[in-house]
Design a protein around this nucleic acid. Structure first.
Lengths: 345, 345
DNA sequence: TTGTAAGCGTTATCAC
DNA sequence: GTGATAACGCTTACAA
């Protein structure tokens, strides 16, 4: 498609200013390399014509797009939005633009978007989690597009990553719950089949149970998607079971908030009748009643660090994967279980 | 910058397949226009070389980037994230990629980002609110970049927009509050100087007061930024004043949730001692205790509609601005004021 | 300091 | 149906 009205080009500017295109280009990209007077003349011509460089031509000639891509499951989940905001802010410092796509937690869409982003000139990619087909991995390698996995860190990761140790974090939460005396645990989690962070968290939880002498097989898991409603529904299902758990751990604050709301609607007192824990320490963790006991994640730091790492990867440097610390934040939804017979703690 | 290892080009593929570059290009862009057999041979060469078209060259030749840009105050505010997600999903349907930037509510950063986005090839822009310097407007006009204002709609808008009538919506909320018997109103709002939606909401509130025979000058306004903490702090300031309001309207659910949390911490019962209302009907509106009375906004519909309109604008079509409906959702934080002397309603 | 001119890798218009 | 070849608008050696 040709532009309806031809935008002014470099040579238009050059003609008006009475210089060569090279000089105009220099004025724009390396002003110090051209004489004060000439530059002034050129800049006036630029102004007069309302010139703005053609993106395609610049990319073709320079060989760079100054753009990176990020593919997240959805922007409509606070667990990603804060870190993503920090990621974008830091990218801006490096003069990079951010291309965003979302996968709706579906691998085939993620793959499609990875290809689309690369086709659109992304020089590097931010990806969530490790789960990915060999096909895409080969594609990325062939195109020499560096990809950084974020929101997850694993000790043995083959790819560069930045995030926290989901296994250890969930295990720590489980230890805290178990230390309070809970023996009947339940988990509300995203589907581990499509969410490797969820899978790893489940494993961490089971490991902690085993280490504490509990049988991991007694763990009841409700798998669901990542919305408030789903968390509430999952809690209701849990509550209909013969053996009600005394503590419900949740894979996310969003699920926990949903569970908490369902508990309130059901007239189930938290933490008196049941303890509920979250994961992520989102804003919502502080506004529930009672406020949510959860695992604090360094959202902004992770976003910033991801941007810095990706910038270096694009520059061709090798980067070390980076583990960030989480910390348990005890608020009001975790307490010792009450004895169901006596009502005593 | 030259690529370290030259990626395969169209002519590499052409050479391997023993055809011309034109044929290869056709195979990729209009497969039906080339013979079955030739195409097969070409595709094999493409595979073998791991060929992927060069973005810059394609843009230069085609004259299109298939990319749009969006600049929002911040992704880290649920009031934008849901609509933005829908916007991106709909863009994908049209084969467009999304470039995202944020302004932190600062006009000068927004302006910088507008220019950056255009420089990076955005064919159209999604902008929040109407407030913008003449400079940028002229720039956009000169570059012939269509811009759609979203999250706001005004009857007399000079630019195409899609959203809701902030004035009418806030007035409706105020009418509801006043109808309950409230006479001492307060508002926790974003700074109207940097947020035109906030300004319009204030005006709507004042208009409703005047229409109900209340003196708009009695409205107490606490201006603050858009975070949970700020909402809480603003509520505390309100509560320290000599004349405590009986109802606190908030410009956003986030501010309302902060206010609600502060009220809880202060031991102020909601809605018994004070009514609080939100705006936007975010997820958090349903998890506060009591759940928040707020104004429902059609987030996803707005995002989708914005994408469709922008696509048409880019195609050169004229579009009509579109107003979307809001609806009051009464939950638990609004009630009739209690008489401070007698405790009666 | 400035100008000349050779790419950059596509798409698209012609001929054939 | 296929092949030459001319744009597309910029950056950047290299020359002057």
């Amino acid at each position: 498609m040709r532009r309806l009205i031809g935008n002014p080009t470099l040579s238009d500017v050059a003609e008006v200013a009475g210089v060569s295109t090279a000089t105009v280009s220099r004025c724009l990209n390396a002003p110090e390399r051209v004489q004060e007077e000439t530059r002034k003349r050129v800049m006036e011509a630029v102004q007069a014509l309302g010139y703005s460089p053609n993106f395609g031509a610049r990319v073709l000639a320079e060989g760079r797009t100054h753009t990176v891509g990020a593919i997240i499951p959805t922007m409509d989940n606070a667990i990603f939005s804060r870190g993503l905001q920090a990621f974008q802010e830091e990218l801006r410092e490096s003069g990079l633009m951010l291309l965003i796509a979302s996968s709706s937690y579906r691998p085939e869409i993620e793959e499609e978007q990875i290809r689309a982003l690369v086709k659109r000139g992304a020089e590097g990619l931010l990806l969530i989690g490790f789960q990915r087909s060999d096909d895409v991995r080969a594609f990325l390698a062939a195109q020499q597009i560096p990809a950084l996995v974020a929101w997850a860190w694993q000790p043995d990761a083959a790819q560069p990553c930045v995030g926290f140790d989901n296994h250890a974090a969930m295990a720590a939460m489980a230890r805290e719950v178990i230390a309070r005396g809970h023996r009947q645990l339940a988990l509300i989690s995203a589907d581990p089949a499509v969410n490797d962070r969820a899978l790893v968290r489940i494993e961490g939880l089971r490991a902690a149970m085993a280490a504490a002498g509990l049988d991991p097989a007694t763990l009841v898991i409700e798998t669901t998607d990542a919305t408030l409603e789903s968390g509430g529904l999952a809690f209701r299902r849990l509550w209909e079971r013969p053996n009600r758990p005394t503590a419900v751990l949740c894979g996310t604050d969003v699920l926990a908030a949903g569970a908490l709301t369902a508990a309130r609607d059901l007239g189930v007192a938290v933490p008196d009748a049941v303890s509920i824990t979250g994961f992520a320490d989102l804003d919502i963790a502080r506004i529930t009643a009672p406020p949510l006991t959860t695992m604090h994640l360094p959202h902004r730091r992770m976003g910033r660090e991801a941007a810095r790492m990706l910038v270096r990867m694009i520059a061709g440097e090798r980067v070390e994967s980076r583990e960030l610390d989480c910390s348990l934040v005890l608020r009001g939804t975790l307490a010792a279980p009450r004895d169901r017979e006596t009502g005593q703690r």
